[in-house]
Structures are given as structure tokens and as C-alpha cells.
Amino acid sequence: MSVAIVFSGQGHQHPAMLPWLRRDAAIAAMAARLRVEDWRAALADEAWAHANRHAQVLITATAVSAWTQLRAALRIASIEVDALAGYSVGELAACAAAGVFSPERAVSLAARRAALMDAAGSTGRGGLCGVTGLGAAAVDELLRGSAVTVAIRNGDDSVVIGGPLSDSHTHGPEAVSLSDGSLDAVEAALAERGARCTRLAVTVASHTPLMRTAAEAFAVDLAGAAMDAPALPVFDSDGNRSWTAEQARDGLSRQIATTVRWDAVMDQLAARAPSCVLEIGGGQALARLWQRRHPSIPARSADEFRTVDGVIAWIERCNT
């Protein structure tokens, strides 16, 4: 029996997520770092929940904690982990799950990553926008010459774009023109062409050149960090397998300022022919992306289950 594990990124964390999750060392470290007694109650405040410095730490801590608790149950059930990957900040959890560094170290790195990205974004407001319903080639053509780039490629007609916000952002998209090269202007132009655009609840333009200084600083931090070669197959945001600690370092820093190729990641995992795919994190975004791209391989999120036993029972059914 086998399962591929994917770890969620930002945007879908919620107070009731992962209802079976127990408090452990990673959760305790996160609560202390964020100075919250009850992280679920803290998530009820949307402004708090979507602040970069809170979200990245919380998402990483809950993910590595969930992995630790699921891993013990997977071993008892003789379920093999075929591969690991993480979406955006989820790559930290994937590397921790692969044994590159400890869960507690992953939480610490998430805090540093968020701080560096916030610092890079302090020089100008940026954002992200999900775009569906328009082919990738058409989106690429419209972006040419603007300061907006593709941050994440999820599929042939599903991307996330990111870039600077217009000075006229508060006045709505009608106040800007495409010539200003802002995310607001590009979003309005895409909507005119029939695309569905959804502004994401993030405060920095992750995975775009606006985060270059953060990526460079994080690379320096990782260069001095003790890391081990992955003990389980883990794939970076370009869909490449990380065989060594150095490859893991490079992937973790590079993705901060370059396009995440989640479409390629999914294809690489599918090529390994797992019996099913389990998303770990809040919501079901990655499971739904998987179902659209590789419907022959079942996918669900651990967030859909009330108990660890329920997660294991589903995986076992997929393997019969």
C-alpha cells in the first residue's frame, strides 16, 4: 500500500481545520512563538490569520504536527509513503517529513521565511490573484511587459499571478489602466477577456521577482543550517526530486522568488503511481487540483476527516 503526501500552502487555514490534531511539541513551539494560548481561537480573527508572520508559522507547525501523528498510524497499517511535496510554504513541512530537518526547525525556518518576505514587501505593496478559465498562453501574452508574473502554475487554465499593487488600488480596477503594469490593471484586463480572477488573502507577492531579496537572504540562512539528505522521496517546487541536503536548500530558497510549477509537481508524483494522494493542511485546494489533473488517482484532504483512523481507513480502501 502506498500514498503520496502533499502539504498545503497559505490561504485555506481555518479555526476548525484538522479536528483530530493533538497538541505536541511542534504545536507548543508555534503557540509560544506566536504568543497565543489557543491557535484555533486566534484563527477566528481573519486579519490575524492572514498576516504573513502568523500564517506561515501556523501552517508549518500544524502540518508537521499532523504528519508526525499520521506517520505513526501509517507505519502500524503498513502503508508506504511514496513521495512528498509541499505547495509554497508547505515545502518546509515536506522537507521536515522527509527528515531534512526536525519539525521544530521547520517552524523556526517558517518564522524566518515570513520575516524576510515581509521585509522584502515593505518597499511596495504586492499581492496575488488566482486566474482560471483562460489558457496559460493567453495569460502569458497579457503579462508580457508588465511587472506582474506567474507566481504558480496549477494547470493549463489555472495560474496564480503576482506583482505590485497600483497606487489607485483602493479606488477599484476601473481607476487603473493596463499600461501601469500593476496587478490591479492586469486583473481587470483578464476579467475583460473572460477569466475568473480571485484576489488571494496574502500581503506579499510570493514567488515573484519582488521577493528576490528574501530569497537571497533565506539562501544564506539555509547555507549555515544543519540539514540531512532526504530519507523519503521529496520533490521541490519545480518538480525535481531533492536527493541531497544541498538540493533541498536550493529548492526552499529559490521558490520564494520564482514560479512554483505545481503542475509539474503533480505530474511527477502521478508518474510514481501512488494508490492515492493525501493533502495535509487546511481546506481541500490541493486535493481538488489533483482531481482535475489526475482523476484516475484518488485524492482527499486530511482536513475532511474527524479522526486519524478515518484517514487511514480511506487510504486502505484506495489500496484494495
Rank of each mutant, 00 (worst) to 15 (best):
L18T: 00
P274L: 13
A106F: 12
V160G: 01
P295N: 11
G135R: 15
T258Q: 11
V6N: 03
P209Y: 12
G135H: 14
V311Q: 07
L178G: 11
H50L: 04
S108I: 15
H169G: 01
C197V: 14
V308K: 00
I315F: 07
R293F: 03
D303H: 01
P298S: 13
L269M: 10
R212Y: 07
L84F: 11
R212H: 08
E91K: 05
R75K: 10
M227F: 11
L286K: 07
G9V: 05
H14Q: 10
I5S: 03
I315A: 00
L289A: 01
A214E: 00
A111I: 00
S177Y: 10
M227A: 11
S237N: 12
W20S: 11
E316S: 14
C129S: 13
V3S: 03
C95L: 08
I297K: 09
R293C: 11
F235N: 02
A313N: 12
G251A: 04
G121Q: 06
P209M: 08
G145P: 12
D118R: 08
A302T: 09
V64L: 02
A106W: 06
S122W: 14
D180E: 06
A73I: 14
P103W: 07
G251L: 02
L70H: 04
R35P: 01
G126F: 01
A248N: 00
S237G: 10
D263Q: 04
A137T: 08
V36N: 04
C197I: 09
M266R: 11
V148F: 02
P230S: 08
V308Y: 04
S301G: 15
V202C: 02
W290S: 01
S177C: 12
P230M: 03
T259N: 05
H50F: 12
C129N: 08
R306Q: 13
E216M: 10
A191G: 14
A215V: 03
A313L: 07
A248M: 04
V6K: 00
G133I: 02
T60V: 13
D228E: 12
A42T: 14
A217D: 07
A188N: 12
T62H: 00
A25Y: 03
T307D: 10
R125Q: 12
L34V: 05
R144G: 04
R196E: 07
T208D: 03
L165Y: 09
G86C: 02
R71H: 15
D167P: 01
H14G: 06
A29S: 07
D303N: 06
N52H: 10
R261L: 08
A225N: 04
Q284W: 04
P233S: 08
A231I: 13
